[in-house]
Design a protein around this nucleic acid. Structure first.
Lengths: 154, 154
DNA sequence: GTCGATGCAAACGTTTTGCACACTG
DNA sequence: CAGTGTGCAAAACGTTTGCATCGAC
């Protein structure tokens, strides 16, 4: 049930699978969409729309942020992409194919991906104590990573 | 230790106490500051800067948002105010005199205040599992309240 | 009278919306 | 060639900053 709440397991192994799904919905597989997907597949962790647009690092010919947002929204409706809010700053987007949730360090901006199943005990505890269904997928747990916590103790 | 990490217990029982603390720091107790404090003392739960400015509900002669933000920042440095991010939308501000942390429902916008101590077991569990020091005070737990979770099951 | 605080205006970073043009299927 | 997706411009939103004026002490 906790498993089911996370949504169906996805079957997108690569960009062409997504292209097929987009076309199946009557959508078109544009160059911009391909670039967005390439950025997401290449990234190791959630990235910002600005990053995808190519504003940061020297990767390729910048595409319009508007287009990035629109494509991300489409992909999110398809279940291909998820977005998370890692503390302050811009939202971050990642492929929904991984069952990762995140711990975000508010000091060093480290993002620690943890298997969603490992947070199930927490969810159960919160449900038992407060009748509240915690969703760490969209608004993750924020705090201090081990390194920064140790530094703060000193 | 978990307790100590939360900062010193505050001794602000009312607006005049804050006024004294402000003056002790060389600050001035302006009319705007008084209005901000009145809104915070009257509120039952974290409120937005816009709300404090008087934009919502017919309460009184609107004060400038700029001034609200500046006063909130001053009060935060004094330890009188804390701000939290309850899901999407504007930040919310509350008196730091209560040891409350929050569970925010992402569907109905309900804000459930829980005694910070009741989240200590969760913090301990996260620390044990990931070496991560979770701070629910600033970025609370987001999900579905009991009512909305039940509705979502149906 | 001093200096901190105010209001206004303008800028900021992120995201959304309107519109005419371009490209996919 | 139909109509989806694009870039550009502009706006929306919450928040910050600059600056001249006001007001607390």
């Amino acid at each position: 049930m906790t498993q089911a709440a996370r949504g169906p397991r996805l079957a997108f192994g690569g960009i062409e699978d997504v292209a097929a799904a987009v076309r199946a919905r009557g959508g078109r597989f544009s160059t911009s969409l391909r670039l967005v997907l390439e950025a997401l597949f290449a990234a190791d962790g959630p990235v910002s729309a600005e990053y995808i647009a190519g504003g940061s690092d020297g990767r390729g010919p910048v595409l319009d942020p508007t287009s990035v947002y629109r494509n991300l929204e489409r992909l999110e409706q398809l279940g291909v992409v998820r977005h998370v809010h890692l503390g302050h700053g811009a939202g971050r987007y990642a492929l929904a194919t991984s069952e990762l949730e995140y711990l975000a360090c508010e000091r060093c901006d480290a993002v620690i991906g943890v298997d969603a199943a490992r947070l199930d005990p927490l969810r159960d505890e919160i449900r038992a104590a407060f009748g509240f269904e915690a969703h760490f997928g969209h608004f993750p747990i924020v705090g201090l990573c081990a390194r920064c916590a140790a530094a703060a103790d000193a």
